[in-house]
Structure formats: C-alpha cells, structure tokens
C-alpha cells in the first residue's frame, strides 16, 4: 500500500514523514517521528494522554489521522519547554507534586497549556471541566488543579516567590 507523504511543523521544526492512512497522528508521532512523550492510554479519545495542540487547538492525537497533519503546526509535550527552561505549567506540576506515575502528565500539561493560552484566569470549575478529558488515576486531581491554578497565577504575574 502506498504511503502518503506528509509535511508538518512539529514543535516549531519542519518535519516530513510517510504514513499509512489508518495510522493516527499518535501512531506517527510515537512510531515514525520518534516523539514518545504523547502516550496511548485508550486509543479512543477517552483518556487524553495523547493530547497535542494542532493549529492552536487541543486535540487527542489518537483521533487525528497522520495524513490530516499535512500543513499543520503541532505542539507535543516535547515542545512545551523552551530549551532547558521548563514552562511554568511544568514547573508548577513539579512543585505541587501534581504527578505520581507520570503517565497522564504529558497530556495534562499540554491540555493545561492550551487552557491557559485561551483563558489565563480560569476558575477551579473551569479548569476541572477543561481537563475532564484527561484521566488521572493516581492523584485524585487535587494537586493537579492546584498546580494549574498556580501556573495560571504565575503566568498572569501574580505569584510571589
């Protein structure tokens, strides 16, 4: 079967790959491009562990075909930090111990970044509903939500120390 040639921008770098039609963007990221930070927890869009930002929108990469990535710009967990500097969301997840096993963490961080890009001052309820598509079985979400709210405050320039 002929593979399709796809050209996309991934984490700011132009990227080219070949993929079969049935391969999802998640399959492509993990198995073709070699970016394994996005995780497969369900392959049905129910867990959010594969969350990426595609042309400014948060999506489950398991629900996007690799071929649909043509011409798009994609941010994965690997593109959230700037060089060696962690994004405030990443830093706050660390400081608040908002992860235990860490498997859902990439998806949660990508989803949180997308939230704060769109709504810099979410309420706790807004944050909880925004992240409802990111399952975490370890934390009970308490510390995750605290990290999100603290990261939002820091990005607004409201935190001290």
């Amino acid at each position: 079967m002929a593979k399709s040639y796809v050209s996309a921008t991934i984490n700011g770098e132009s990227s080219e790959f070949l993929c079969e039609t049935q391969q999802t963007l998640l399959d492509v990221l993990r198995d073709v491009v070699g970016l394994t930070g996005s995780k497969e927890g369900c392959a049905s869009g129910d867990c959010g562990a594969c969350s990426v930002i595609m042309d400014g929108r948060l999506v489950c990469s398991c629900l996007v075909l690799g071929v649909e990535a043509e011409g798009t710009s994609i941010t994965t967990i690997e593109g959230i930090a700037t060089g060696e500097k962690l994004h405030p969301v990443q830093q706050k997840f660390l400081e608040h111990a908002a992860l235990q096993c860490g498997f859902c963490t990439p998806g949660l961080i990508v989803a949180t970044k997308a939230l704060l890009d769109e709504n810099p001052n979410p309420t706790e309820t807004e944050a909880r509903y925004w992240l409802a598509g990111n399952l975490c079985r370890c934390t009970g979400y308490d510390k995750v939500i605290r990290a999100v709210m603290d990261a939002a405050a820091e990005l607004r320039g409201e935190t001290v120390g």
Partner: peptide, 9 residues
C-alpha cells in the same frame, strides 16, 4: 460532546 480535546474536532 466529549472533552475539550473532542471539541477541537
């Protein structure tokens, strides 16, 4: 319908 991620699509 679905999550924020689903809303993106």
């Amino acid at each position: 319908i679905g999550s924020t991620q689903i809303q993106g699509r």
